[in-house]
Design a protein around this nucleic acid. Structure first.
Lengths: 105, 105
DNA sequence: ATACTATATGAGTATATACTCATATAGTCA
DNA sequence: TGACTATATGAGTATATACTCATATAGTAT
């Protein structure tokens, strides 16, 4: 059975829907980093970080490439920052706005 | 302990990160609907739909109000459609784009 | 070769999520 | 009042997720 367009969107959003993955992505905003830089910077246990990176790579949100022992990561699709920014706006939207919406009925 | 801005964003994204909730939101795009209209239209079991709606209301993505026996729902923050649209674009972004990104290193 | 470093992964655990069925609650209408 | 309708929720189950510790893998450097 093939993946619906709803599932495709849900998979992308799900990959973004974790505080530590959001922190990782914002850390990568400055440029490519390896696991060994991200882990201490964000205080994440190595194997845990490795699995978060796997999720981000699988959803093609970041790309990775080997450089000797290290694996470097870089944002693959900068549109995710628009999604994160919008998510922040939705989270902070005021109750007032919603009262107005109710009054429109 | 208070909720970080990362958690706030993750919570919004998490509420959006389910195929059925995305279907519900797109169905509500046309205007306010009650549970009793959504369930048959999207072929969702009543109690399951009720719990999905609870998640969307808790995250203030939709607003609800009673009308006799019925509970009506309406989109509270239309910015979520921008998020869903961007999620679709990210999901469909081509490998080519990512090859370019790698070549930039 | 050995020692070292960076990352990936198996195994176990704890928690969260989605779902269903049955039942409770709340409002309507005869 | 009782019968009916729409929604919410308790309980149970199955699956997914996040995390940790230990170990495997792969590459570096001596």
């Amino acid at each position: 059975m093939q993946t619906s367009r709803y599932e495709l969107k849900a998979n992308v959003l799900n990959a973004l829907a974790h505080p530590n993955r959001i922190r990782i992505l914002e850390y990568l905003k400055a440029g490519a980093k390896c696991n060994c830089e991200i882990a201490p910077a964000l205080d994440l246990e190595q194997s845990n970080l490795s699995r978060h990176m796997k999720i981000l790579v699988q959803e093609k949100i970041v790309v990775s490439w080997k450089d000797g022992l290290r694996v470097n990561y870089k944002i693959a699709d900068k549109q995710i920052f628009d999604i994160l920014s919008l998510a922040g706006k939705v989270a902070h939207a005021e109750a007032k706005t919603r009262v107005k919406i109710l009054e429109e009925q």
